[in-house]
């Protein structure tokens, strides 16, 4: 069976969930060979092996942290040349997409970004994408070169599939361009202790209706009662009530949780673009005409300052 390269997203050796989902998809089209770069690369191997990686190619060098994107492209290209894979799969993070795109142009291949599903096809992997703010679903494939495909979080289940996961050092020689963009400083984001927005099974979001940064405590309280991540509309972010990293929508994160709770959010097309594929959607909004109600499985027309506290209490008491 042909090998498939899987680019690993990890933080100091802790593999992020979308990579494990990618391994599930990779196994549908070939034998997954993982590529892990940077500090902690070797520490990823055990988890990757549990989820189906037959080999784990690793490389660490200061360049990966000190310069933007290009060193990683050089390394992924080295892996590509060493393995001659049938496809290259990369998580659809901002950086993942840039790495994938530059690799694709170097190896003369087409690229598909933001796939939400992947199947084997007669002419190579077929990717499903959700386009025009999730109004359409398309199926496409790469028709030239080795398919390079980036896949969104929550596109496949994480499955245990033990494999060898043999660690092999990947030899990388950096190109002259690798040091073009210097990372002068890096400030890691502080963890909120809540689940990662794009990976969470439940997301509770607040919008302009929340009416103030201090009131986001209400949204956080509801989120915590459900073990959920907190999201926000752009209006709430632009007002400075919640950090931009929590923005859901076209220019924020795209989420696809089991449950999405929209509070005080009207449901503009750009917001919907980031949450419309959620499995179950509920909303609390005082305007019965708000477009968000077109999407909901259950909606409450009412004042969020009344409904949210009651809901949070009721959840807590039901959970005991």
């Amino acid at each position: 069976m042909a090998e498939v390269l899987v680019y690993v997203d990890h933080v100091d050796g802790a593999v992020r969930k979308p990579t494990l989902e990618l391994l599930t998809l990779a196994r549908r089209v070939g034998e997954p060979v993982a590529v892990a770069l940077g500090p902690g690369a070797e520490a990823t191997a055990a988890t990757l092996a549990e989820h189906g990686a037959t080999r784990v190619l690793t490389a660490d060098a200061a360049e990966f942290a000190d310069y933007l994107v290009v060193p990683k492209v050089d390394a992924l290209q080295a892996a590509y040349e060493a393995v001659s894979p049938a496809a290259v799969l990369v998580p659809s993070s901002a950086e993942g997409k840039e790495v994938a795109a530059r690799l694709a142009v170097r190896i003369g291949s087409g690229i598909i970004t933001d796939a939400i599903d992947l199947e084997a096809g007669d002419e190579g992997p077929v990717a499903t994408q959700s386009v025009f703010a999730a109004a359409f679903t398309t199926k496409s494939r790469v028709s030239k070169g080795t398919p390079v495909i980036t896949v969104k979080p929550n596109s496949a289940p994480v499955e245990a599939a033990p494999a060898a996961g043999a660690v092999e050092a990947l030899a990388v020689s950096f190109s002259e361009k690798a040091t073009g963009t210097k990372v002068v400083s890096r400030t890691p984001r502080e963890s909120t202790g809540r689940p990662e927005l794009t990976e969470a099974a439940i997301v509770v979001s607040g919008g302009r209706g929340v009416n103030g940064a201090e009131n986001f405590a209400l949204i956080e309280g509801l989120a915590d009662s459900l073990g959920a991540a907190v999201g926000a509309s752009r209006a709430a972010v632009d007002a400075g009530w919640y950090p931009h990293t929590s923005q859901v929508g076209q220019t924020g994160k795209s989420v696809s949780p089991q449950l999405y709770v929209a509070t005080g959010i009207s449901g503009a097309i750009q917001h919907r673009a980031g949450m419309q594929t959620s499995k179950t959607i509920v909303a609390i909004n005082k305007d019965p005409e708000a477009p968000i109600f077109d999407l909901v499985d259950y909606g409450v027309v009412g004042d969020l300052f009344e409904v949210v506290p009651q809901l949070t209490e009721e959840i807590k008491s039901r959970k005991g």
Binding site: I111, V126, F136, T138, P288, V296, V300, G302
Partner: peptide
């Protein structure tokens, strides 16, 4: 083009949910 779209389907409208007034 190095990619090919084989099909595009309109996403089925979400089935109307329950809406209650508080």
């Amino acid at each position: 083009a190095w990619t090919k779209v084989d099909s595009a389907a309109e996403r089925p409208a979400r089935t109307a949910g329950t809406i209650v007034k508080d």
